[in-house]
Amino acid sequence: MHILEYDVLKNLVDLRKIYLCHRNADPDAIGSAFALSWLFGGDIGAVGDLSRAAVQLADSIGIKPIIDPDLDSYDMVVLVDTSVSSQIGGAMLRRYGVIDHHLDRDLLENAEFYIQREADSTAQIVWDIIKSSGRAGRIPREVALALLAGMVSDTGRFRHASAETFRCVHEILEAGDVDYGEVMEVLSRAPLDFSQRVAVLKAASRAEISWRGEWIIACTEVSAFEGSSAMALLDLGADVAFAASSQGGVCRVSGRASFRAVQAGIDLADLMKSIARSHGGSGGGHRGAAAMEVRHPAGRLLAELAEAAFERLNV
């Protein structure tokens, strides 16, 4: 059942609830879950682990999300920043709702309620929920920090930000006792560890580079850190980058696109969702950053993604 922001409370009142974030939860997921917990009460959980940036955010706002919680002990599970079953490891859900800014519909049919609309971050939707509850006049510093970190992170530090994002940032800075510099300090305190630095450097050394016209696409296979590896290739000059890893027969791919490529028509969320479904998997994300999981050889999958990206760039 689709609901509006001011209807969330009636779906959560008097229930033992948990706000569940996707695997390798990012600052947008953790920040949004924390803000919802402050607003309505309830626990915060995540599947598998948190990203390094999310760990730093969690430490800064003083929370310890429950990793792989026992969902049967809750009356309601609220999936935050998550609308694809593969992101929660196929967890069995009885009663659940969805609050998310991705437009995947995988989990909506059986949800008791959902708020899903296109936005730069789930934190923006949560901020609108807070405003509709009448509690946006003054919010705790930690809530402001959590929401802002989610917005900054999911927009690539505003490289893919809309006017709505800047409106929300302005409102939160006024409502919370936090400076923008504090947000950037939290996010910058998550340096690459040794294994991640090695993985990123190997990704660059193994990358296969193709170009047509003025567009450059880089593809690489890694053992882990797909997102960081794809972003590194973008920073090195690629317009679109894909990094794939294979574990247990499942291939995971992260894709990143430059602002210029997005402006030219690339929508990685749609591209990866389409290709994933053609192989019986799932995918989604944003126009400039997306991911997918399928059972398919990594090399062939990367070649297919690169060709599809070139087609969408009309070259």
Results as ranks from 00 to 15, higher is better:
143 V>K: 10
79 L>Y: 06
288 G>E: 00
177 D>A: 13
19 Y>N: 09
199 A>D: 05
53 A>G: 07
14 D>P: 01
301 L>T: 06
267 D>K: 10
11 N>Q: 15
128 D>Q: 08
3 I>N: 10
120 D>P: 01
269 A>E: 05
167 R>A: 02
251 C>V: 14
140 P>M: 11
56 Q>E: 14
200 V>T: 06
313 L>A: 12
166 F>Y: 11
106 D>V: 08
117 R>L: 09
311 E>N: 15
105 R>F: 07
304 E>F: 03
35 A>N: 09
160 H>A: 06
46 A>S: 14
281 G>N: 04
168 C>L: 12
140 P>Y: 04
286 H>T: 04
151 M>D: 03
289 A>N: 04
202 K>F: 02
225 F>I: 07
110 N>W: 04
145 L>H: 03
41 G>C: 08
125 I>M: 10
126 V>N: 04
68 D>E: 08
219 C>W: 00
152 V>N: 00
23 R>V: 12
213 G>Y: 12
128 D>N: 11
294 V>A: 13
74 Y>I: 02
278 S>W: 01
6 Y>D: 15
269 A>Y: 02
96 Y>F: 13
134 G>T: 08
30 I>Y: 04
101 H>F: 08
229 S>A: 15
288 G>A: 15
305 L>R: 04
177 D>M: 09
291 A>P: 05
88 I>K: 07
28 D>A: 14
107 L>E: 02
280 G>T: 06
236 L>F: 11
123 A>F: 02
167 R>D: 03
204 A>C: 11
213 G>S: 08
10 K>L: 13
81 D>I: 10
206 R>P: 00
203 A>T: 04
62 G>V: 07
202 K>S: 09
19 Y>S: 09
216 I>P: 00
209 I>F: 07
23 R>L: 13
